[in-house]
Simulated scan of single mutants.
Amino acid sequence: MTQTIYFEIKGAGDPAAPAVLMSSGLGGSAHYWRPQIDALCEAGFRVIVYDQRGTGRSPDALPADYTIAAMAKDVEAVMDAAGVACCHFVGHALGGLVGMQLALDNPDRLSSLTVINAWPAVRASTRRCFDARLRLLDHAGIRPYVEAQPIFLYPSAWMEANQAVVEAEVEHAIQGFPPIPNMLARIAALKAFDITDRLASITTRVLAVAAQDDVLVPSSASEALCAGLPEATLEAMAYGGHACNITDPASFNAILVAFLTRV
């Protein structure tokens, strides 16, 4: 792995303004956080978003034994390149795992950690969803795999009301789909992640946001996180699905900005 990681810095020009680094889920795209950037910038934060290695504008060939720990090292490289010694980290699903790994490996680099629909170890229901999608990818190809994705991301009512948005996202995801070996390596990394026995070692202050209608990751996963973390607050969203920061950005942004402001 030799390529540098693409990242963008948004918001306050003051280099002393607190930095919020945002790490997306399996898709790996900086674009995922577009509903949050303005709210955070208006609250006085600098926002760093990036395309994860092997995705989007950070092309690279990933090894089959790729790990969440390697993804956490990439975050440190992004911080170094951005001139940021310490940040508030916000991670969605896989991105949340990356943040927890960084909190274990180098906690001095984190002012706080927000994890959205994440888990200490992959849940049986989540594994079933990924296994079904992998069979789609293997037997039917990229388009059916991507066309099934909104079912796991969004509430059905939201999809019905935003059909054009969903269709555009599907086509964009197909056009930008990473090499299949990279996708397989990333899924294997999240399935192998298990810090159940190390949660008590994470001393960073944590906000866990859980959507109660998430069909991919049950809210019980966030409850398990908070039960094991020394400094954790659980915020439940009744509506929003797995991508609750996209489907209900007003509620999510209010929760996030309030937490970061308190910290």
Rank of each mutant, 00 (worst) to 15 (best):
His88Cys: 07
Val90Asn: 00
Ala72Trp: 07
Val78Glu: 02
Gln52Leu: 03
Ala77Ile: 06
Arg46Asp: 00
Ile48Val: 09
Val78Ile: 04
Ala82Val: 05
Ala43Pro: 05
Met79Asp: 05
Met79Lys: 01
Arg57Glu: 10
Ile48Gly: 01
Ala85Asn: 04
Cys87Lys: 00
Ile68Gly: 08
Gly54Trp: 13
Ala39Lys: 14
Glu42Ala: 15
Ile37Gln: 01
Asp38Pro: 10
Tyr66Pro: 03
His88Thr: 03
Asp65Pro: 12
Ser58Gly: 07
Ala72Ile: 03
Cys86Thr: 13
Ser58Thr: 14
Asp60His: 15
Asp65Lys: 03
Ser58Gln: 11
Gly54Met: 01
Pro63Glu: 12
Arg53Glu: 03
Ala85Trp: 08
Cys87Phe: 06
Cys86Arg: 15
Ala85Asp: 07
Asp60Ile: 11
Gly83Cys: 03
Ala82Leu: 06
Ala72Gly: 02
Gln36Phe: 04
Cys87Ala: 14
Gly54Cys: 09
Cys86Asn: 12
Ala81Asn: 01
Tyr50Phe: 15
Tyr50Gly: 06
Ala69Leu: 12
Ala72Ser: 02
Ala81Lys: 08
Ala81Met: 06
Ala77Tyr: 13
Trp33Lys: 05
Ala39Met: 07
Ile48Asn: 09
Ala77Pro: 11
Gln36Met: 07
Ser58Leu: 02
Thr67Pro: 09
Val75Met: 03
